[in-house]
Design a protein around this nucleic acid. Structure first.
Lengths: 154, 154
DNA sequence: AAAAATCTTGACAAAAAAAATAAAGAATAA
DNA sequence: TTATTCTTTATTTTTTTTGTCAAGATTTTT
């Protein structure tokens, strides 16, 4: 009943881009340093999130990953669906597994419980956006770190 | 984000005792046959549930496992807490892991999200009892199977 | 008292999933 | 052209889950 680290890290990485770089190009290296996540692992997670349409990327110097949508348009649920596969406490009620429905479907009295639990999780995760995390972060006093490319020495 | 089979099987096994044997002594063999779960595995799960106080046991012929409480007093949440350890989508907010709180606690903006999600799951699972599963089973037309020891041939 | 049925305990093994690392390659900016 | 950064695919390691085994203890039945 635990979220995978890909989901947890994924949410934090997306938040990181939104909070520290205003959603603009951010290098894996920077996210890795700020969030304490292995850069290689972030890259792996970001490939999924990119396919999922949440982020885009640009190669080369001053490249990086950026948000494809505004923070208020990205929900936690959206991220988790991509990193986790789906949001359901059991796989026998997952839509993507519907090709192989549980063979006990007709006699399984617990099915509706798992279904309803999944529904509640989805409802909650879909109601929280990255923007709200940013607001929360500000409240918590987490310092914004501007990307070096925006810094000028005077 | 999936429940372990121990949790799913655990709930079904408890339901089985309540539904098919009215909560009285039921042999692992019978539960195994009805629910399609390996008898050894059921035994393993039942050891936890026994320590958790949900079921009791009696050895020897005509022995078996029985419910220590009425079906309406056993919640799904109770069972899952025993089989799963706790009900939380991440371990950094789990009470039992509080000895090793996440080292990023102060700066982790996602913590409250996982906390709240866990709370919603708990609220739901704690609101469903085994009795309700039994009612549901009757509605679904699942046939009650009386234990052989209550059967007399006339 | 003996035999059969049933739970008990702890260890063990197999399988699956998750987590993390690696390396060669392609694109881009300076 | 070179350094930087993402891309792709593979591999390795670790952890968790799932399941099995066997010897032992208890109780009922005969």
């Amino acid at each position: 009943m635990k979220l995978s680290t890909q989901s947890r890290y994924g949410v934090r990485a997306i938040f990181d881009i939104a909070y520290h770089s205003d959603g603009l190009e951010t290098q894996v290296k920077e996210i890795s340093r700020r969030q304490g996540i292995s850069p290689r692992y972030i890259e792996q997670i970001f490939q999924k999130l990119k396919k999922g349409g949440i982020i885009g990327s640009k190669r080369g110097p001053s490249g990086g990953y950026f948000l494809n949508k505004k923070p208020e348009e990205i929900t936690i649920g959206e991220i988790i669906r991509i990193t986790e596969g789906d949001i359901n406490p059991v796989s026998c009620v997952s839509p993507e597994d519907s090709t192989i429905p549980c063979e006990r479907s007709g006699e399984c009295v617990t099915q509706f419980v798992w279904n309803e639990a999944g529904k509640r999780l989805k409802d909650y995760f879909d109601s929280i956006t990255i923007k709200e995390l940013c607001i929360k972060a500000k409240e918590m006093g987490i310092k914004k770190e501007f990307d070096k490319k925006f810094m000028y020495y005077i």
